[in-house]
């Protein structure tokens, strides 16, 4: 069952343009000029119940704008959105009971109150009986390991602790869909990992559908089974993670350390990425050549060490961004 259906969604922003310097400022005051920026153009997709889906794309691609339209914050110019059978522009308040949002760059907690008071507050906002809220807080406190700072005012928390509380605050009312807009921005790797594990567990335990945007590819790789890549307001790819890897991972990287210098010539399908002293780095296009072909080019007797790896997902994604730009 689809929980989110988006059809031909579009949104443009009117942005004032100003020429250089003081002269430009005066000019734009007398006769303002506007630029219409099409942030989202004709996007269509749907999300199934219990899915974990990632929206990725370069800055300004329109991913946040799309999320903000699905949550009812922004009004679309055209197209149709259906979230849990509701229209976000018309049934905003009703929808609010069903969804949760975390915007990594904004704050929703009351900074002078403790996380505990905050959670009680959000419970009351969603009309949840007090005893149920208490129970929920206990549950979350264990799951998100909040014991240490549950009674410390939010303003004294570290960023990692605060984000954890932000997520919990968005979960108090057990939303059916959770929108996470860059939830791991600015966090250290350990905390990032923790948050990922939590998101995963939530998805498993409560069957929460999760829509995520992030610039961190490992967020996506570790969490989501499906990715939608957006660039310049359009969907350039909507596929499963597996397919993405399968189709784009037909290149391997070979790192070798040799006893003596080898002079290698490039052949079709094998590119030399680095050749420094006794170290070599080759990229093998598996459509054209096999790994064995590449190794045969080297004298295996002189080999000290070898490492064969996939092309990092990050590179694949930037490759796709670039393709999208060419089109």
């Amino acid at each position: 069952m689809a929980v989110i259906t988006v059809e031909k969604l579009s949104k443009s922003f009117k942005v004032k343009i100003k020429e250089k310097g003081l002269k430009g400022s005066i000019k734009s005051f007398i006769k303002p000029k506007y630029n219409i920026i099409k942030a989202v153009k004709n996007i269509s997709f749907s999300v199934e119940k219990g899915e974990m889906i990632a929206f990725i794309g370069p800055n300004g691609a329109g991913k946040s704008t799309s999320i903000k339209m699905m949550t009812g914050i922004l009004f679309p110019d055209g197209g149709k959105i259906d979230v849990l059978g509701l229209d976000p522009t018309k049934d905003r308040k009703k929808l609010a009971y069903e969804i949760g949002c975390v915007f990594g760059q904004k704050e929703q907690l009351w900074t002078h109150l403790t996380p505990y008071d905050n959670f009680k507050f959000f419970g009351a906002i969603y009309d949840i009986p007090e005893s149920v809220v208490e129970q929920k807080i206990d549950e979350m406190r264990e799951l998100f390991e909040l014991d240490e700072f549950i009674n410390t005012p939010v303003r004294n928390l570290s960023l990692g602790q605060r984000i954890r509380c932000e997520i919990v605050a968005s979960l108090i009312h057990e939303p059916k869909i959770l929108f996470l807009d860059e939830p791991t921005i600015g966090l250290d790797p350990v905390v990032k990992e923790k948050i990922r594990t939590l998101i995963k567990r939530m998805n498993k335990e409560f069957k929460t559908t999760i829509v995520l945007t992030s610039h961190d590819v490992s967020d996506i790789e570790k969490l989501c089974k499906r990715v939608i890549i957006v660039n310049k307001g359009q969907i350039v790819l909507d596929d499963t993670m597996e397919n993405l890897k399968y189709h784009y991972l037909n290149k391997k990287i070979i790192d070798v350390k040799m006893k003596e210098k080898v002079n290698l010539e490039e052949v079709d399908g094998i590119t030399i990425l680095k050749d420094k002293d006794y170290n070599l780095k080759l990229e093998v296009d598996l459509k054209k050549k096999t790994i064995a072909d590449a190794i045969k080019l080297l004298n295996t007797d002189n080999m000290i060490d070898i490492n064969i790896s996939n092309v990092p997902l990050e590179d694949i994604i930037s490759e796709i961004y670039k393709d999208g730009e060419k089109e």
Partner: peptide
């Protein structure tokens, strides 16, 4: 600053 976004996604006016 757009901080109003969180307020919009809450079930109050």
């Amino acid at each position: 600053s757009g901080n109003i976004t969180y307020n919009i996604t809450k079930p109050y006016n």
